[in-house]
Design a protein around this nucleic acid. Structure first.
Lengths: 206, 206
DNA sequence: TTGAATTAAACAAACGTTTGATTAATTAAT
DNA sequence: ATTAATTAATCAAACGTTTGTTTAATTCAA
């Protein structure tokens, strides 16, 4: 019971935080949408801030393990590793786009410094893994000399740019308003294809 | 007098909105930082919302004119036009990074639908201009067949990704904390170089 | 002296949070 | 097996603060 309802509150909160931001969401809004009493949020989580942290912990997606698995996979060439990185990020961000949007907000704002720093820390470690893949490719002369950090920024930035707002998605995709870009496989493939094209043309020698 | 103080309030507001978001910034915070009386904000702007709109109008940067100038410049080749687009965006976003961050926030959130839609509308028109440049290059067989919308998303997304947070900048740049990435010419050139490399390798035939 | 600028104070509404009562479910004692 | 005691969940109501906004008085400049 308790766990179910806690999760239900967290899931409702994710939707609201993603659409309105943390400070733009009141506990009354949240309680109303989750159809629970106002007091339940503080009863379960202690405070609005702690609800936020509980949400981050529960919905955290550990990309690092996936990236390290890709980086250490000796059956893949370096360019295949980069392709796998692209696919992993597109899949992850598309499937968790609300959570990802909240992270994105926190990254932009200077509120909640602790959260902010831990996001940058995670990002920092992921950057190092991508960097090592790219530098290996360069050392083997399979890759051109590129800017490893900014190459990673391009991959993530492109996905973010199209995933930021539904309106932006529909603009890029030329679809009607009730179309859901987050579940559309064609759209996903389009992003993956574009990013692979970017990565291949940027990295591979001719 | 009036104009000076109004501008001073707007400039202070930009800094706060960029760091804490619109709902995360109280009029009291703003008044304190701008060193004016709390009542002055409503005296000059009518309301917090209207201050926000006044700020958007005053600090709006009309990229479209610049883009159309580039697109219609017959002395430039298509790839040179794309290079000019890259430079224009990097310069614009770096020089107005706080304003740009606020626009970015509004794009992500579902608050203030009117603002949200007008941002998407502006973006939509800019996308069309870039698209026309790329499609001209493709028609002339100077460019490879690429995804024009996503190519634009890559340019903007890359800049956004590195400009989102100062922490992110310093992570990419490996500099000490008091280093200011927004005014550093070396950093700017690094981004421009990377993006031109992306655009060239993606678009140009070999 | 008139109108604009500025102020401290107050306003209602909304905020996150806490309370104390009530109900439902679980455990312990007889 | 039944009752009593204990715990957990839920609720409406209220708490003190902070919010955006307004007032009315005062200062300033022309």
């Amino acid at each position: 019971m308790s766990t179910d309802k806690k999760e239900h509150i967290i899931n409702t909160a994710i939707g609201l935080f993603a659409e309105r931001g943390f400070e733009g969401t009141s506990i009354r809004d949240l309680a109303a949408k989750a159809e629970v009493n106002i007091a339940m949020v503080n009863y379960y989580f202690g405070s609005k801030d702690k609800l936020f942290e509980a949400m981050l912990v529960q919905k955290a997606s550990y990309m690092r393990e996936k990236l390290e698995e890709i980086a250490n996979d000796k059956s893949r060439s370096d360019i295949e590793k980069m392709d796998a990185v692209v696919e992993a990020y597109v899949n992850r961000i598309l499937s968790q786009h609300q959570y990802h949007r909240i992270i994105h907000q926190e990254l932009m704002l200077k509120q909640r410094e602790e959260v902010h720093n831990s996001i940058i820390n995670i990002f920092s470690k992921n950057t190092l893994i991508i960097k090592s893949i790219i530098e290996q490719g360069i050392k083997k002369k399979a890759f051109k000399k590129v800017d490893p950090e900014l190459t990673f920024a391009t991959i993530l930035g492109t996905i973010n740019q199209v995933m930021l707002s539904k309106g932006m998605c529909n603009l890029l995709i030329n679809k009607e308003k009730n179309f859901n870009p987050y579940t559309d496989e064609t759209f996903k493939k389009r992003i993956i294809t574009h990013l692979k094209q970017i990565v291949h043309s940027l990295l591979l020698q001719h």
